[in-house]
């Protein structure tokens, strides 16, 4: 079992109208890997992550998560599988008007029955779990603050806490450092990696990044995407100038 990949794409293509966001992508990621997706804007990084968490369906091909085909499932079984994937979004996608505790507790929603979810809105459940996650991220005192009143960085950490509470097998992160200054971006990546490690050594992280240096520093495998295709898929150490120049080359130079 250890050898079967947790994430697998079988010749996946994804079209938006007449534009191919991804074409015939094959990919396998094993448990415990930390993978960075790099590439220029519009290369298909976000599309790939959306396919992996099931918010997008491929036009062709199949997406396998934990050895089950995501696009063949629906309803309850699909949700059950989705619980195993946590996502940190670029826009955080938190519910602004809820207090922090509820946004963190939203990580439980895949497991909680509806009544418990509703009750928790009035009497927050599993406060300790949320408290612990927030404390680790340095937000222990913001448990009952309104989410919309936190700073962008704080909101990102709430989103991270939501993922930790969700406790998934796979964590996806979409451009977590896109709007953060260089000094802070190390901080964010460190938190992200620490959080995933905290969950367990077998947890997988897939993160899309612009900054290859960051990718090399925090991930053990880098996938270069360009125009919807995988340009290279190498261990971090093996990625050099040559690959990067080709990856980021402007259109006419390519």
């Amino acid at each position: 079992m250890a050898t079967s990949p947790v994430l697998r794409l079988d010749s996946v293509s994804c079209w938006f109208g007449s534009v191919a966001a991804l074409s015939s992508v094959n990919l396998a990621i094993a448990a415990g890997e930390r993978v960075a997706l790099v590439g220029p804007s519009g290369a298909g990084k976000s599309t790939l992550l959306s396919l992996l968490n099931g918010s997008l369906m491929p036009t062709e091909g199949e997406v396998w998560v934990l050895a089950r085909s995501l696009n063949k499932l629906s309803g309850q079984s699909r949700r059950k599988l989705q619980r195993q994937i946590g996502t940190v979004y670029q826009q955080h996608n938190l519910v602004a008007n809820l207090s922090v505790i509820h946004n963190v507790n939203a990580g439980h929603l895949g497991r909680w029955p509806l009544w418990k979810a509703v009750v928790s809105l009035i009497w927050p459940q599993q406060v300790l779990v949320a408290q612990q996650a927030l404390t680790q991220l340095g937000l222990g005192d913001k448990l009952y603050a309104r989410t919309e009143r936190l700073s962008g960085g704080q909101q990102q950490r709430v989103a991270l806490a939501r993922v930790m509470v969700q406790n998934p097998a796979i964590v996806l992160a979409d451009e977590p450092v896109a709007s953060v200054d260089p000094a802070r971006s190390h901080n964010v990546m460190q938190l992200l990696c620490d959080s995933v490690r905290q969950l367990g050594q077998d947890r997988t992280l897939v993160v899309s990044l612009h900054d290859v240096a960051l990718a090399k520093a925090y991930c053990d495998r880098i996938i270069g995407l360009r125009q919807g295709q995988i340009q290279f898929d190498l261990p971090s150490a093996a990625v050099g100038e040559q690959q990067l120049t080709r990856l980021y080359a402007l259109e006419d130079a390519a």
Binding site: S55, R79, Y89, Q91, A106
Partner: peptide
């Protein structure tokens, strides 16, 4: 729809 889609993709009913 961002926040709602985010919740949905983590498997919420």
């Amino acid at each position: 729809d961002g926040p709602v889609r985010a919740l949905r993709s983590l498997g919420a009913s």
